[in-house]
Simulated scan of single mutants.
Amino acid sequence: MIQLTSLKGDAFYLNEILIYRIDQIPDTMITLTDGNKLRVSETPDVVVEKIRDYQKSIGAIFRVIRGEQAP
């Protein structure tokens, strides 16, 4: 899950698998796979960076579980 910030300034966590698309209109609008929409303070680039960082961390956990060496 990634931590995001609502426009009111409240932090929350979102399961990144539920993201369908991210638009900037002018706020960042995240459309979920079920059609719900969320507006967040982060820019689309920051949201994508958070998703990549989270997915990298999950990959690292699986490598440790399998006993593989880190690249």
Rank of each mutant, 00 (worst) to 15 (best):
M29P: 02
D23E: 15
Q69P: 06
I19M: 06
A11W: 09
Q55A: 05
D45Y: 04
D10K: 13
V48T: 11
L18E: 14
T31K: 01
G9K: 06
S57W: 01
E16D: 15
A70T: 10
T5I: 07
R66Q: 08
V47W: 06
I2V: 06
L14D: 04
Y13H: 14
E49F: 05
G9S: 09
K8Q: 15
E16R: 08
Y13Q: 15
Y54I: 01
G67Q: 02
T28S: 08
V64F: 06
Q3A: 14
L14V: 03
L38P: 03
D34P: 03
S41G: 12
R52S: 10
R39F: 12
D10Y: 10
N36Y: 08
T43M: 09
K8H: 10
L18M: 11
L4F: 06
V40A: 04
I22C: 05
G59Q: 10
L32M: 09
I61D: 12
S57N: 12
I58Y: 02
A70C: 06
N15F: 00
N15A: 09
N15M: 02
M29L: 14
T43F: 05
I61E: 15
R21H: 10
R66P: 00
S41I: 08
I2W: 00
Q55G: 00
T43W: 03
G9C: 06
P44H: 02
I19S: 09
P26A: 07
R21I: 01
G35Y: 05
Q55N: 14
Y20M: 11
G59W: 00
N36C: 10
Q69I: 00
P71L: 00
K56I: 00
N15S: 09
M29T: 12
T5P: 03
V47F: 06
T43L: 11
N15H: 08
V46M: 10
D53T: 10
D45V: 03
T5S: 11
Q3G: 09
Y13N: 15
Y20A: 13
R52D: 12
Q24H: 11
G35D: 12
D34M: 00
K8R: 14
E49Q: 13
K8T: 14
L32H: 04
Q69Y: 04
L4T: 05
D34Y: 01
R63D: 07
P44Q: 00
K56V: 00
D45S: 13
E49C: 07
R21K: 13
R39K: 15
I25A: 11
I65K: 04
M1K: 11
R52E: 14
D27E: 15
I58L: 12
I30M: 04
I25G: 11
Q55T: 01
E68K: 01
N36Q: 15
R66C: 03
Q24P: 04
P26C: 06
L4Y: 05
I25L: 13
G9I: 03
A11E: 15
K37I: 07
M1N: 12
K8F: 08
Y54H: 14
R66M: 02
